[in-house]
């Protein structure tokens, strides 16, 4: 079955979600990925939102984390303080996987969603952290969605909004953060993981029709490509569920 790049990205992210995970969800493709995982490979995963809704009955895709669609049939509707407490709670915090997007990511998985250029007089201003900095500070596993373009994978971020591995091994702990950090960067060309020892991004898989060199050509810094394999494309079953049950009205995909 033919598939789009967006569908490929969604499925690659969904496969990273394990049964029993509590998935912190943003808007757009991250919401679709979490909903897809629940339908396909992790039926006992739980979706929750920084606005305070947990295990919502998502009969329709919410377009924002404050959409009334996240309030319907939830296990509980509370507020922001409760949601961020869930991420740090000693009994629930370790089960949480975050999904974030960003304007820039560096080789240690630090994110910029604030601005391009000088902070005070930016060339381009973005939304800012929202809950992203909090999620990246607190949770032990994180998926990051990116478009693969050189300017989005810079050597140095214009602004560090959300912490990844900061400047390398041990840096999170030195800064006072909990261990953990980003797990995978999922782009329109492939998937990158982070090395256990160096904490640097490396290419784990590239999509059919893409070469590792294509990926290197689309980033400012180089990554190790020696471990890369071709990614398994979405199966017919995965695509069918994605199209028929997750996003039938093509709101996101």
């Amino acid at each position: 079955m033919d598939y789009t790049l967006k569908e490929m990205m969604t499925i690659m992210a969904a496969r990273e979600i394990r049964d029993g995970d509590i998935v912190f969800c943003g808007t757009g493709i991250s919401m679709v990925a979490a909903m897809a995982a629940k339908q396909i490979n992790a039926p006992d995963s739980i979706i929750f939102f920084e606005t305070g809704a947990i295990d919502s009955k998502l009969e329709e895709i919410p377009m924002a984390v404050a959409d009334s669609r996240v309030m319907f049939g939830a296990a509980s509707n509370s507020g922001l303080l409760e949601a961020f407490a869930t991420m740090q709670n000693p009994n629930t915090g370790d089960r949480i996987i975050g999904i974030l997007g960003s304007a820039q990511v560096d080789k240690y998985g630090n994110l910029n969603s604030t601005c391009i250029g000088d902070y005070f007089q930016p060339k381009i201003r973005f939304s800012g952290s929202g809950g992203a900095c909090d999620v990246a500070s607190f949770v032990s596993r994180c998926l990051i969605f990116m478009q693969h373009e050189k300017r989005k994978f810079p050597v140095k971020l214009d602004y560090l909004t959300s912490p990844g591995y900061l400047d390398g091994p041990g840096a999170r702990e030195r800064a006072g953060l909990k261990p953990g950090g980003p797990t995978a960067v999922i782009t329109n060309l492939g998937v990158m993981y982070f090395d256990d020892v160096t904490k640097e991004m490396y290419l784990a898989s590239y999509y059919p029709g893409v070469t590792p060199q294509d990926i290197l050509d689309n980033m400012e810094f180089a990554v190790d490509i020696s471990r890369a394999i071709e990614a398994e494309p979405p199966s017919d079953r995965e695509l069918k569920i994605l199209r028929e049950r997750v996003d039938p009205h093509k709101l996101i995909l």
Binding site: L80, S129, C133, L177
Partner: peptide, 28 residues
């Protein structure tokens, strides 16, 4: 961050001068 702002309102509601968190260490 959203948590910073939520905590700041919470501190204001409780009448304490500040509140502590681990969010944002190492960031701009």
């Amino acid at each position: 961050s959203n948590y910073h702002m939520s905590l700041r309102f919470h501190a204001g509601a409780m009448g304490v001068p500040f509140i502590n968190t681990l969010s944002g260490l190492g960031t701009d």
